[in-house]
Design a protein around this nucleic acid. Structure first.
Lengths: 129, 129, 129, 129
DNA sequence: GTGGTCTAGACCACC
DNA sequence: GTGGTCTAGACCACG
């Protein structure tokens, strides 16, 4: 398990963990019916209070990403991968809309805005190739 | 002064106020050397805690958008319009980069990402025309 | 606020509180935009740890029953009454189905089951009138 | 022994086992003085921790459904069939009363409640025929 | 061993 | 004053 937490990230720790697990599920790194690390184990590994981990896991159960197996731990729920992928796209779309609408609200010149977007987009594509 | 504050907005109120003043300065609605409303006056007008207004003004002074005038109050600093416009662009650029890099990190399909951006961009342009 | 908590109820305390608030919202006892008691206040009143109250309130926010108002507290969200009423009916329906299906699974005699239901139903109606 | 255990069922495993044994006794599938499988045997067969089986058996002894036979194991107690049938009815009655009283407490419309019950009841009857 | 609940107390941002 | 986050440690049911 390669989780990484930054307490100065702005995002709450439990959120960072939940998010990383969702990504791992979406990418198939964590598979359906696979047991995830126990609360205490991950807490030890990340040097974080078990309650904080437990809160992340609880949130993931609310989102139907994890399911309890009595006495054994928590496993990835069936259908979770699909849900996580969908949520990811939805999140990106919402964020993108926010930024662009903020840009519009800022009366940013349309041409300049498009240039900005294109520059960042092609930078991303270069990184990928 | 036509400010508008929404306590359900998620953004802190002092931030909403500071932001609106910056926009007004960037757009030339508030001009250099013009006095802005006093803390108490604006607080009364918006039915908001004066501490909150004061905090917004303090932040604007830190950003060199406002300057104190002894005995008179706060006025728009010289060069503030330019700075506000720049900051606006910089803010958008940073936010945009975040979203796009997050999209990349989400292994979102490159083509789909570009489509998403284009769709939102053209929607914005339609709204404008 | 007339909340009542029983630590030996089987149900977790935070759940009992959340449930009672949902009922109060569904019945119009708590109205939209009304501020609910603060975490600390309710904790003091019920002699319960503030964290437990906070958890109930957090859950209610997840269910879109409560909304934060910065610096002021938590208020009943708009549309919450409708949602709470719906959820209540749905809960009852699910519970009822469980019991009846359990009865079926127990090979309980059909006639006897119907008698049981009728007896309880008319008892309820007597109580009401 | 055709027992069937589902770890995702919500119900504790020992409870599922105890319940199935009670049903088998109530239905005469397990008869008075009949020896039931040993803890180890059933544990092996169901691939379950022996402690869990032992707990189910202990609970069944507390409920006077099973009786120890020195050196032989556990057998169905005399009168157990009768007790199991009664308990089944009593359990259903209690659960039913809970649900209906909860419905009442929810100020559910009396007519709607009766309709709900009738719908579920007739659905059950259709399933049976 | 597992997760779940609860208590106690600290610190933060916001109003 | 408000809610939100985090730590620390206790106790429980379950396997």
């Amino acid at each position: 398990m390669f989780f990484h937490v930054d307490p100065h990230n702005g995002l709450p720790i439990y959120d960072q963990i939940a998010r990383q697990i969702k990504f791992a599920v979406a990418d198939g790194i964590l598979k359906t019916r696979e047991l995830i690390p126990s609360v205490r184990e991950l807490a030890r590994e990340l040097a974080i209070n078990p309650n904080t981990i437990a809160r992340a896991y609880r949130q993931l159960q609310d989102d139907r990403v994890l399911e309890p197996v009595r006495g054994a731990g928590l496993e990835v729920a069936s259908g979770a991968a699909e849900r996580c992928r969908n949520e990811r796209v939805k999140l990106i779309r919402v964020r993108l809309r926010q930024v662009l609408s903020e840009a519009k609200h800022s009366r940013l010149d349309a041409r300049e805005l498009r240039e900005l977007v294109e520059k960042e987009l092609s930078a991303i594509e270069r990184d990928r190739s």
